[in-house]
C-alpha cells in the first residue's frame, strides 16, 4: 500500500509536467490546427536558459523563473513569426515536418551552445522532501502539481470568458469564417505560440528542478504527446488531465510490472482508450446535424 501511494504520488507529479507540455500541444493545435513536434525541445532549451541565468547572473528563484518565461514567450513568438507564418497555406503535412525540423535544430543547439553533460538546476528551492501522510514528495514536485492546476484553471477562464480565448475557439472551429468576422489569424497564432512556449518552458524548469538537466530532456515531448492525444488534442484542459493519467500509468507499470514497461505504458494506454473514445477523453467531437 505504501508503495502504491508513493508510485501514484510521484506519478501525479511527473504527470503534471507531461500535462503542462501536453497543454502546449493542445493550445497550438486548437489555434492553428498543427501538432508542434518541437514542444519537448522548447521545454528543454528554456530549462537550459534558466540554468545559464542561475549560474551566471543570479540564483534568485523569482528572477530565474521570470527570465525563463520571458525567453520562452520570445522563443515561441520567433518560431511563429519566422518559421511557421511563412508556411501558412502550405499543406499540413509539410508544416508539421517543419516543426520536426525545428525540433532537431533546437536539440542540437543544446550540445552546440551548452554541453552534453547533465547539470543540476540549483535554485536553493524544491529539492527538500515534504512528507504528507504516508507519501513524501519534493517541493518542486508539489509545485508542478500546483502549477498544472493553476494553468488549467487559467485556461478554463481564458477560453470561456476572454475575447481572445473565445476567438481562438472560433478560429479552431472555422478559421475562414473567423477571418470574415475580423479576427486576425496571425495574431491568434502568435498568441497561441507564445502561450504554448511559456507553459512548455515552465514545465521544463520544473522538470530540471526535480530531475536535473540533460540533452535527453526533449523526450518529455514524446511522453507528453500521447497525453495530449489521450485528453483530446483539441482539448487544452483535457490534455492536462491526460498528462496525469499517463504519469500515473507509467509509474504503476514501472513499479509493479517492470521498468521495461514504464516507457511504453502510456502508449499502450492511448491505444486502448482511443479504440473506445476516438476523440480522446475530453476531445470535442464534430457536431453533425442531420
Amino acid at each position: 500500500m505504501r508503495l502504491f501511494a508513493d508510485l501514484v504520488a510521484s506519478g501525479i507529479a511527473i504527470g503534471a509536467i507531461y500535462g503542462l507540455i501536453a497543454m502546449g500541444f493542445a493550445v497550438i493545435y486548437k489555434a492553428t490546427g498543427l501538432a508542434n513536434f518541437a514542444q519537448g525541445e522548447m521545454s528543454m532549451i528554456v530549462a537550459y536558459v534558466a540554468w545559464t541565468i542561475s549560474t551566471t547572473l543570479t540564483g534568485n528563484v523569482f528572477v530565474v523563473v521570470a527570465g525563463s518565461i520571458v525567453f520562452a514567450v520570445l522563443l515561441g513568438l520567433a518560431v511563429e513569426r519566422f518559421i511557421m507564418r511563412p508556411m501558412l497555406g502550405e499543406p499540413i503535412f509539410s508544416t508539421v515536418l517543419v516543426t520536426i525540423g525545428v525540433a532537431v535544430v533546437l536539440r542540437s543547439l543544446i550540445t552546440l551552445v551548452w554541453d552534453a553533460y547533465p547539470h543540476a538546476l540549483n535554485l536553493g528551492v524544491g529539492r527538500d522532501v515534504v512528507k504528507m501522510a504516508s507519501v513524501s514528495l519534493r517541493g518542486a514536485q508539489i509545485a508542478s502539481i500546483l502549477t498544472l492546476l493553476a494553468v488549467m484553471g487559467a485556461f478554463y477562464l481564458f477560453f470561456r470568458f476572454s475575447k481572445i480565448g473565445v476567438a481562438m475557439r472560433a478560429v479552431a472551429a472555422d478559421d475562414r469564417t473567423a477571418l470574415l468576422m475580423g479576427v486576425s489569424a496571425a495574431r491568434i497564432h502568435a498568441i497561441a505560440w507564445g502561450c504554448s512556449s511559456a507553459i512548455a518552458g515552465i514545465a521544463g524548469v520544473l522538470f530540471a528542478l526535480v530531475y536535473d538537466l540533460s540533452p535527453a530532456m526533449f523526450q518529455l515531448g514524446l511522453k507528453s504527446f500521447p497525453a495530449s492525444i489521450l485528453g483530446g488534442l483539441d482539448s487544452v484542459i483535457g490534455s492536462g488531465f491526460g498528462g496525469i493519467l499517463i504519469g500515473v500509468a507509467e509509474n504503476l507499470a514501472g513499479g509493479y510490472v517492470g521498468s521495461g514497461l514504464k516507457d511504453v505504458a502510456g502508449f499502450l494506454m492511448i491505444i486502448v482508450i482511443l479504440m473506445v473514445q476516438p476523440f480522446g477523453l475530453f476531445g470535442e467531437r464534430e457536431i453533425v446535424r442531420v
Binding site: 475575447k163 472560433a170 469564417t177 473567423a178
Partner: peptide, 19 residues
Amino acid sequence: RRVFPALTVEENLQVGGFT
C-alpha cells in the same frame, strides 16, 4: 451560414464583434 458550431449563440456574437 457557417456559425461556429461548438460555440454558444452568445459566443458566436462575441466573435462577430471581435473588432
